[in-house]
């Protein structure tokens, strides 16, 4: 198996180095190029063959979001690479905007040490990496629709998944849910992934379609 080729864009050289060291430890991931701002990232995508682009949102010259828009446009060489956004901002609107621009997910810098590798693999599989902060908004919308009697994806959640779903809707973090239900964080995260899959929000396109229909993003 050849390792996935990654382009890493962040204006902070030391952050870049940190991310690179973490990714390069994984046998299936390799950073093949770096960029210090959005414009440079767009150029690298043109001249380097990459499978995945990791973009920091706050960058000079061209922000990560602007760069994602450029990269997401289908190039003459076929499918654009998969994209993953990296950011300090804990705000679900960034996640939805990232989705809209064609990115597979959004990783918060404060959990990059835990989530980044998993997010990269999900993105490479074409799945969405739903950042925990956005789960609340998605799930609340789902519950609202169910209450109003609208047609929602048919789902059979287990009792535990139902509990987790409600706690997510109330804005609890994985850590808080783990404590409330006396289960491990890893288990909470597995439930989270299962719930998403059951609600039909596993892959990027499904999730984007859902978010647009729910009015969480403009089409």
């Amino acid at each position: 198996m050849t390792a996935a080729r990654i382009l890493l864009a962040d204006d902070h050289a030391l952050v870049r180095r940190g991310v690179r060291l973490i990714l390069d430890q994984e046998p299936d991931l390799t950073v093949v190029a770096e960029a210090g701002d959005g414009a440079e990232a767009v150029e690298r995508v043109r001249d380097t063959d990459v499978d995945l682009v990791i973009l920091d949102i706050a960058m000079p010259r061209m922000t990560g979001l602007q760069a994602a828009r450029e990269i997401g446009r289908r190039s003459s060489r076929g499918e654009p690479p998969r994209m993953l956004m990296l950011s300090m901002h804990d705000n679900e609107q960034y996640f939805f905007e990232s989705l809209k621009l064609g990115a597979c997910g959004y990783v918060l810098k404060s959990v990059a040490d835990e989530d980044l590798v998993g997010a990269c693999r999900a993105a490479l599989r074409g799945e969405a990496f739903v950042y925990p902060g956005a789960m609340g908004a998605l799930v609340r919308d789902y519950l609202d629709r169910m209450r109003r009697g609208e047609r929602v994806p048919e789902t059979v959640l287990t009792e535990r998944e139902d509990e987790v779903l409600k706690l997510i809707a109330e804005g609890s973090s994985s850590k808080e849910i783990a404590r409330a239900l006396t289960i491990s964080i890893k288990t909470v995260e597995r439930h989270r992934a299962n719930i998403l899959a059951k609600l039909g929000m596993r892959d990027r396109t499904q999730l984007t379609r859902y978010a647009i229909r729910a009015g969480l993003i403009e089409p």
Binding site: L14, G18, M88, K109, S110, A112, D113
Partner: peptide, 8 residues
């Protein structure tokens, strides 16, 4: 962030 990634 650098410290976090470095520690990991």
């Amino acid at each position: 962030t650098v410290v976090l990634l470095g520690l990991k």
